[in-house]
């Protein structure tokens, strides 16, 4: 047993956590599973329906459309926020008073509650009174995020980039400042180009924190609800109805508990599977 001591008493320390987790996670999850395999016509009367809801959701075009929108949204914000965050972290000062100034400025968007972010951008982007909306129109752009699909997406992504790039910046910056000066000095002596320094020193040292950053941004953006719902409410039409918004519409709008429960399980499994694959790939590369 690798010389490790086995002490069964350790279970007593784990059991309280297990109980807590079962109340706030496992029990609710069981209710969802319960709904997902039954049909109800109200009055708390349920009929067994097997995997019908799962089949229905997986074949539903509405679900496919929401999933596609979700994938585009997450793909887009990752493609923008990760390189942008790394670039900002590289440009930030390493010494002096400006360090704290930059860090505080960077942390500000992260401190704002999500619904406030949505409300801020909702007003900021209004074409008739908002600074951004009115400004864009004044510059000659025909901008109206409440009516035009492209504008809605543009505003949605811009808002997320504004809100969350800081997270990538802070994590990447933490990775950068942990690199000893000797590495940069050795690289200068070895005649390394700026790109080689980034590629062979900075990027490898940021790898761990970037893995975390990408994983967090992936999970958060795939789950995102509050900000887009306050900003566009999923519109115009269904143009920005992401998975979570669609789920709430089915569950609480239409009160289709069975399909909603099946959909949340599928949703949950997609996130779990993608996170696991992503993490496995990133850490396997590291071991090589």
């Amino acid at each position: 047993m690798n010389g490790k001591i086995v002490n069964q008493k350790a279970w007593f320390f784990v059991i309280p956590v297990l109980l807590l987790v079962s109340f706030n996670a496992i029990v609710p999850l069981m209710t969802v599973i319960n709904y997902s395999v039954q049909e109800t016509f109200g009055d708390n009367v349920f009929f067994w329906s097997g995997l019908t809801w799962f089949q229905e959701i997986l074949r539903s075009e509405r679900f496919h459309a929401a999933l596609t929108r979700q994938a585009i949204f997450t793909g887009a914000i990752l493609a923008i926020e990760v390189p942008l965050g790394v670039a900002i972290a590289l440009a930030m000062p390493r010494k002096g008073i400006w360090v704290s100034v930059c860090l505080v400025l960077m942390a500000l968007p992260l401190l704002i509650p999500w619904n406030v972010v949505g409300a801020m951008w909702n007003i900021f982007a209004l074409p008739n009174i908002g600074l951004l909306g009115k400004g864009l129109n004044a510059l000659g752009f025909d901008y109206n995020y409440t009516r035009q699909v492209g504008d809605a997406w543009f505003t949605l992504i811009l808002m997320d980039v504004w809100h969350w790039t800081s997270l990538v910046v802070l994590l990447a910056y933490a990775g950068l400042v942990s690199i000893p000066d000797a590495y940069y000095q050795a690289a200068r002596i070895d005649g390394a180009s700026r790109w080689a320094v980034f590629r062979h020193i900075q990027l490898p040292k940021m790898r761990r924190v970037l893995t975390i950053a990408i994983l967090l941004r992936f999970m958060d953006s795939f789950n995102i609800y509050t900000e887009p719902v306050v900003l566009t409410g999923g519109g115009p039409g269904n143009a920005t109805t992401l998975l979570s918004i669609d789920l709430v519409k089915i569950a609480l709008g239409q009160f289709d508990l069975g399909p909603a429960a099946a959909m949340s399980l599928i949703y949950f499994l997609i996130i779990l599977a993608l996170s696991w694959i992503f993490y496995a790939v990133m850490t396997r590369n590291e071991e090589q």
Binding site: A182, Y183, Q185, A186, I189
Partner: peptide, 19 residues
């Protein structure tokens, strides 16, 4: 700059390119 002086320097903490 160092790269034009043709100097090699070995530091207190070993510097290797990890990857």
């Amino acid at each position: 700059p160092p790269e034009e002086r043709h100097i090699a320097q070995i530091f207190q903490f070993p510097v290797v390119y990890d990857t």
